[in-house]
């Protein structure tokens, strides 16, 4: 394990930011800290970096106890949401900063900066000022700056949060490929479940200062530990007192399957290739259930407003009882 976080507690005044948090972050992996805003994930990342101190508990990085080490001595790379560019320095100077602090020979710095500029595809921009770069380029510069010192762990705080949707997607794919190339242990904070599912090897779900679940994206999606994890990772709907994914509910036009529940389609909304059906149960409560089917499926069954249907969860559906 590259990072061991043990029994961390942190309060800001009366607000409990982290409560007895224990996390092990595996070496060489890309781990996401996922959760809603204000849930404590950024605080945890900053405690790992040494930018914030915990009230109690310990942080171990690469086998050494880092709890009392100042940020300068932890050898971590940190990337900020708003880039934290050194505005008065050129892009190359920004990247060289950590190496200059470490008093590396000039030639070595020069070579290393050139190498990193290439890695982040900013070869042409070394002499520019950060203000002359786009947001995505600035964040790549910040990443190169953090990587320059060959950190034992790379920590990213909502690294794509300040970018446009399109750039965010590009940069996210790029980060995944970069990580496959560089293999540095990486932890990034995000509140975007799609980002976490797409990019990371492992996800730590954090909510209200506690770890809700740790696992691979598949594990989390297929076997959520509780209703919070399930609903945070994607859309859900309630059928028969149980939480399901809307695409995990089968729709039949005949009451064939045992235990299937009769209902009536009350609304349909087409979004690209999928169709979201709002279905009202024909029981006393008239509960509404959301079901997602493909466009082709909808056509073949002739599903539309007012049609009577029977609902049944699919065979291996992820399900969590509603508390």
């Amino acid at each position: 394990m590259s990072i061991e976080v043990k029994n961390i507690n942190k309060r800001f005044g009366n607000f409990v930011a982290l409560e007895n948090v224990n996390v092990s972050i595996p070496t060489g992996q890309l781990t996401a800290l996922l959760g809603p805003s204000g849930g404590g994930k950024t605080t945890l990342l900053r405690i790992i970096a040494g930018l914030e101190s915990a009230d109690s508990g310990s942080v171990e990085i690469e086998g050494t106890d880092a709890t009392q080490l100042p940020v300068q001595k932890r050898n971590v790379g940190f990337v900020f949401q708003h880039y934290a560019a050194f505005k008065h320095m050129s892009v190359a100077k920004n990247i060289a900063f950590g190496l200059e602090i470490r008093k590396r020979p000039k030639d070595e710095i020069k070579d290393r900066v050139a190498e990193l500029l290439e890695l982040v595809h900013l070869e042409q921009f070394g002499h520019r000022l950060p203000s002359q770069l786009s947001g995505g380029q600035r964040q790549r510069m910040a990443l190169a700056r953090a990587l320059a010192v060959e950190p034992s762990v790379l920590l990213l705080d909502e690294p794509f949060g300040a970018l446009d949707a399109k750039v965010r997607k590009e940069l996210r794919d790029w980060l995944r490929r970069l990580h496959d190339e560089v293999h540095v242990t990486t932890v990034f904070v995000t509140h975007d479940q799609e980002e976490a599912l797409e990019v990371s090897d492992e996800i730590v779900v954090i909510n209200e200062g506690r770890v809700e679940q740790v696992g691979s994206p598949d594990t989390l999606y297929d076997s959520p530990a509780n209703d919070f994890v399930m609903s945070f990772l994607g859309p859900t709907t309630i059928l028969d007192g149980t939480l399901y994914r809307p695409h995990d509910i089968d729709v039949f036009t005949h009451p064939g399957i045992e235990g299937s529940i009769p209902a009536r389609i009350v609304r349909e909304l087409r979004v690209g290739f999928e169709v979201r059906l709002t279905v009202e149960l024909l029981d006393a409560d008239h509960e509404e259930v959301t079901v997602t089917v493909t466009r082709a499926h909808q056509r073949s069954l002739g599903l539309s407003d007012g049609i009577d249907v029977w609902l049944s969860p699919t065979h291996a559906a992820a399900a969590v009882p509603v508390p």
Partner: peptide
Amino acid sequence: MASPRKGR
């Protein structure tokens, strides 16, 4: 420890 501004 802690951020450079908030330090003791």
